[in-house]
Amino acid sequence: MDPETFSGDTVIDAVSAVFMVVGALMSLAAAVGLLRFPDLMTRMHAATKPQVLGLFLLLFALGLQMRTWWVWPVLVVAWIFQLLTVPVSAHMVGRAGYRTKHLHPELLSADELEAVVQQAAGKSGFSDDDGGATTDGR
């Protein structure tokens, strides 16, 4: 944009270019994981997590490219929103997947939740716990 080309500008450009390419690669990692992993739970690892790094790198590159200070708070807010929402949706999908037996037991080396679930199911049916017992108390 500005006519003079001092070295600092090209360095910033190069860094943001690398960040953008790596950020895009993270999306590709998610897709490769989606296609190659055997069951829902392992797919979730590939699907949601690399996006955190991917979006971080892309937003960083965007901030570097804009070269104004007031975009940074927006970018940070966008990233923090992602940090807050990704684990929650991953947990919800993962829990639903576990309960509906969307995993292959032969691919697990240990399952320490199984016994607990069996015990709870034997005791009180398959109740809808969401911490439900605790929120009722309020």
């Binding site: 690669l25 993270m26 990692a29 490769v32 994981g33 190659r36 992993f37 055997p38 739970m41 392992t42 690892h45 590939a46 997590k49 690399p50 955190v52 790094l53 576990y98 691919l107 697990l108 080396s109 240990a110 399952d111 320490e112 939740l113 199984e114």
Partner: peptide, 20 residues
């Protein structure tokens, strides 16, 4: 992140996991 990428490419369907 890179470890998961490596696992997806190298191990793929044979990956072993656990609930701890």
């Amino acid at each position: 992140s890179f470890q998961v990428l490596f696992l997806a490419v190298a191990k793929g369907p044979k990956v072993i996991s656990a609930v701890v």
